[in-house]
């Protein structure tokens, strides 16, 4: 698929959010995955402000605890916080300026092998829901087209979350976002269960869950919930592969 085709397909996917069975967690996970494909990022994290007004990592393409910790730093001091507060993209910040503005974040990012961080807000008009964080191993300068694409992806996802919702639907969205954050923890716990049952690393365990979800055509969080309830035999998958 060309980049234009992928982009077009992604916009259609991101527009499909209305309905009771809409799963925020899977929606944002898909957004993150598409951003790695379309924008060539090494790792992508989607951060949303929860109902408490604090930023939380809701979806991520990388699951090593070091990278997750880096994102946690970016939330308290880093481009992510700046993009969320200002509602403007924080892109193409030079390495010297980055070290001055976010010393802790920049130090940690470099120690993990990341050379660039590019962040666009998830915003519609005055509503800033969160931010899309792109991390690159290679030093990366986003051209105007890339920035526009990143903003369009973040924007259409934001509209998808907010679009034409009545007060009752807004309440449902609040509930869905809240549930997505709780399910994020369910996924972490399920990764631990899979890691222990299979001997895989925690990161590979996430991939295992994602494969299982795709194969069954079910939301990741449902599969994770089943794993915790002991309803899924994860070892069987392992044998299947061998």
């Amino acid at each position: 698929m060309s980049r234009e085709q992928l982009l077009a397909a992604t916009f259609v996917e991101l527009a499909d959010t209305i309905g009771d069975d809409f799963e925020v967690l899977d929606f944002l996970q898909n957004l993150a995955t598409r951003c790695t494909e379309i924008l060539g990022a090494t790792a992508v994290g989607v951060i949303l402000a929860d109902q408490r007004g604090t930023l939380q990592l809701v979806a991520s393409t990388t699951h090593t605890s070091q990278v997750l910790e880096l994102v946690a730093i970016a939330i308290s001091e880093g481009p992510c916080l700046d993009a969320w507060r200002s509602g403007a993209p924080v892109v193409n910040v030079g390495s010297e300026e980055a070290a001055l503005r976010w010393p802790r974040f920049t130090r940690e990012a470099r120690s993990l092998g990341f050379a660039s961080a590019q962040v666009v807000p998830m915003r519609m008009r005055s509503d800033v829901l969160g931010a899309l964080n792109l991390l690159y191993h290679e030093p990366t300068v986003l051209g105007p087209d890339d920035v526009a694409v990143a903003q369009a992806l973040a924007g259409v996802a934001t509209i998808g979350l907010l679009q034409e919702r009545t007060p009752r639907q807004k309440e449902i969205l609040a509930e869905q976002l809240q549930t997505a954050l709780a399910l994020r923890v369910v996924v972490e716990q399920a990764k631990g269960v899979v890691a222990e049952r299979t001997g895989l690393s925690v990161e590979d365990s996430f991939d295992r869950l994602a494969v299982l979800a795709r194969r069954q055509g079910r939301p990741l969080s449902d599969v994770a919930t089943d794993v915790l309830a002991g309803l899924v035999e994860v070892l069987a998958l392992d044998e299947e592969r061998n």
Binding site: S65, E69, I75, E188, Q189, K191, G192, V194, A195, E196
Partner: peptide, 16 residues
């Protein structure tokens, strides 16, 4: 707060 490894470890310990 912000320590996903606590939840991952909880899952591992439950199996162990």
């Amino acid at each position: 707060e912000g320590h996903p490894e606590v939840h991952q470890a909880t899952g591992m310990v439950s199996v162990q």
